[in-house]
Structures are given as structure tokens and as C-alpha cells.
Design a protein around this nucleic acid. Structure first.
Lengths: 224, 224
DNA sequence: CCCGCCTGTTTACAATTCGTTTATATCACA
DNA sequence: TGTGATATAAACGAATTGTAAACAGGCGGG
């Protein structure tokens, strides 16, 4: 959940922005002055700051400049001041975008989204599943046991990954084969058996008495 | 030196943009059509793409969408089409900014600078990644092994740099090629293999038993 | 202007890994 | 205890990767 700070002394407008951003699963806090902004920035970490320029006790430029001394947090100016000079000043103060009022809320939203995407990644969330002393990082494709990296082959990893994604549930052999080898694969069930064995050899303390990669008789396998 | 691709069929305007950007130490290439854009993207790597929307043989939206399939290169739309719908379409296609014509050149420049800064770092801070007795300074583009400087060629360094930025994760061969050789590059996978080999020869104690530049069979490579 | 060096790409071949199958042993349930 | 299901071990072939060397283009120095 990304947190956004809106700094604007027009409370009505600020509320509208807040409502819209909250609809899109951002967490929003509001400040109406430079002072209030610094107070909030001191307390909490924000993933983005939206700045008006004209504030009762200073300018958004000042806020941005100060902020940049200590932080690279994304900043978007949103202001009624729309001259080129103001834009240049804003960007030179370290802003990432500048949106002159009046703007459409939709445009604000897509720009916020674009900057979030650029700053925090295209949404590749790091998925990690652990059992016992084994950690499986699904996005990085690496596995550790007791902190030590474990080398798994392609099929071994894919198989383990599918079990991880269905941790706790018994997966039928047919299902495993079609997920790992492809829907119309014609490999024999024994192939699956062998790969399970190799996983156990690499990941279980006692491969012949598996504690995590369990077999479900007549059904398939289950990760616990 | 950052390379920028301008895609615009208005050659006069394109030239003006080029001149200005070159004054600010960017290296610029120009394309006047979708086709030309793809050609350039096939054999060179760009750090940013400026896209017009109306092109003789397609739209900038198409270029952006295709590009986003394989690359996270920063994209700015600059177009006479200034409706909200167009802006939304542009951002949804994966753009980072949208600048309606007519715009001032100065504004284009500060937006380019801001996006470069956001994407490639705030300049001064030294990014350094180490593994074993090897240290890679990403901003200074130099590498040491056991304190001794190591000479890497351009491609060798780019490849290593990308692996460093994704230390610990298995990077697919396709991804490596599109990041190092350019979005639509058509170099063969064997070229990648050879460059990996050279890196290992220069950085690994026992190149044939690499401890850090690991191969992930059928997938790609990983830095540990 | 020519030459040699450096870089990058491709090619050909060697070495290795991986996945599958087969064969046999062991296990779980009725 | 018997029988089908699963585990274990090993072997083979195919596909992937490593290696070395040749080739081409660009650049700078003589």
C-alpha cells in the first residue's frame, strides 16, 4: 500500500483528490501548510508527495527543495501557477512532474500511477514462500536451505514453485504434470516421481522421511 | 552520455528538438515513422524515447505498447493531440510523461532531465555493488578485482551492470539481450554466451567453475 | 593513407547438464 | 499378507552451454 501526502491549502480540492486516490488504493494524508507538511514528513514515510505552490506560510518550491536534501521521494507539483518559469523552477527544485490547475482528476491519477510505476517498479512483487529452513523466491528463481543457495534445475524449480503456490493443498499428479510439463504433455507419471525425489534429496533433511514434500497416496503431492 | 530517440514525422520540429537536446549533452537519433523507429530500436540501445502520436504508418501508442513488451526504457509522448483521452491512452500504454504540443522547448528539456534523473539516479551518489573480491562502481563505470582495476569493454560492462542491478535474481537471456543490446535487438544468444565467458575470464578465480556469474540452465544467468 | 589493435559477432566443435526412461526395491493400504 | 503404488538408482540421448578461433568493422597512430 503506497502512501501519498497532499500539500494544499484548498481543503475542498484536497479532499476531492484524497477521495479519488483512496479509491485507487492509495493511502492519503493531507497538509494545508508548509509547517504541517514538514510535521507529517518527519513522522511518516511517504511514497509520493503532491505539492501546491502557494501556501499560507511559504511555497511548495521550498518544501521540495528541503525535501530533496534528504530524500528522493517522487514529487508532483499541482498548482494554479502555470507559467513556464514556475514549471522550470519546480523541476529544478527536484520535482518529477508538474500539473497546472485546473487539471482533470483522471489526469492527476494517471500521472501518479505512471510515476509510481517508474519509481517502484512495474509491479513485479517479490513472492517468497518458506517451509522449514527452506526459502523459495519465486520471482528471483532462487532457493535457499538454511541460508545456503540450492541449485535446482528448470523442471525441479517449476515443480517446486507450483507446490509453493498451492502450499498446504494436495495437488493431483495430473494437475502437476499439466502445469509443469504443459497441458498436452505426455510424460509418464514416473517422471514426476523422479523429480519429486530429487527435490526431496536437495531440500529435506531426511529425504526418505520427508517432512514438507509429502506424498498423498493415490492422489499426488502436497507441500506443508 | 545518454542516447535519446525522437520519433516524429515533422522533420523541422524534430531537428529543433535534436539541436536543443544535443546542446545539453544528449546523443540524439531521429525516426520519422513507426518503421524507422523499430529499425533504430533494433540495433541500438536508447536511454529515452520521445514519441509523436500521429505517424505516417501507425501511431506512437503502438510503438510504446510494443516497446513495453520488452523494455522499461523511459517514454515521453509529445503530440498535438491533447485530449484527456489521448493522455490516458498514452499513460496506459506505459508512458512516463505526456506533453501536448505546442510546448516550449525549455519545458521539454526540463521534463527530459527530470525523467532521466528519476530513472538513472540523482547523479552524485556512487552506486557500488560487490561480490567476492570484485567491486563494480556503476556510476563511475569501473571495476576492480582484489583492488586491481579490471578493463571491461562497453558491452561487457553493460552486461555486468545489469546483472549487478539484479543481484541474486535469475535474469532471462532475452531480458539480458534486450537490456544490453537494445529493445528489439536481434543478436544471437551465442553472443551473450561469449560475453559472459569473457566476464568470467576477467572476474572469476576459476572461470570454468564460476562462483558468482552463475548460469541458470535454460533460463539465463544470475549474479550471486 | 595504411596498418594494427581493440571490440563485437558469428561459427564450429567439445563438454556438460538435464530430463526421461527403465529396472528393481520398498511401501501403504485393504 | 498381497498387490498396486511409490521410492530409489542408474543409464542414455538430446539439448544447452562452454570454449576457441576466425572474421569484420572502427579507431587511432604512424
Amino acid at each position: 500500500m503506497k502512501r501519498i501526502l497532499i500539500v494544499d491549502d484548498d481543503r475542498a480540492l484536497s479532499d476531492i483528490m484524497r477521495d479519488m486516490l483512496e479509491n485507487y488504493e492509495y493511502e492519503v494524508e493531507q497538509a494545508g501548510s508548509v509547517d504541517e507538511a514538514f510535521t507529517l514528513l518527519t513522522d511518516k514515510k511517504f511514497e509520493m508527495v503532491l505539492l501546491d505552490i502557494n501556501l499560507p506560510d511559504g511555497t511548495g518550491f521550498d518544501v521540495c527543495t528541503e525535501l530533496r536534501r534528504v530524500s528522493a521521494v517522487p514529487v508532483i507539483f499541482a498548482s494554479a501557477r502555470s507559467s513556464l518559469d514556475d514549471k522550470v523552477t519546480g523541476f529544478e527544485a527536484g520535482a518529477d512532474d508538474y500539473l497546472p490547475k485546473p487539471y482533470s482528476l483522471k489526469e492527476l491519477l494517471v500521472r501518479v500511477n505512471a510515476l509510481m510505476r517508474r519509481t517502484y517498479g512495474m509491479g513485479e512483487k517479490e513472492e517468497q514462500v518458506c517451509f522449514g529452513d527452506v526459502c523459495v523466491n519465486l520471482s528471483a528463481r532462487n532457493v535457499t536451505k538454511g541460508g545456503q543457495p540450492v541449485n535446482l534445475s528448470l523442471k525441479e524449480f517449476d515443480l517446486l514453485a507450483y507446490l509453493c503456490r498451492n502450499k498446504g493443498v494436495a495437488v493431483e499428479k495430473d494437475k502437476l504434470i499439466s502445469e509443469v510439463w504443459g497441458a498436452f504433455s505426455e510424460v509418464e507419471a514416473s517422471t514426476l516421481t523422479v523429480h519429486i525425489r530429487w527435490l526431496r534429496e536437495k531440500l529435506e533433511d531426511t529425504p526418505s522421511k520427508p517432512e514438507h514434500i509429502k506424498t498423498v497416496f493415490k492422489v499426488g503431492y502436497k507441500l506443508e
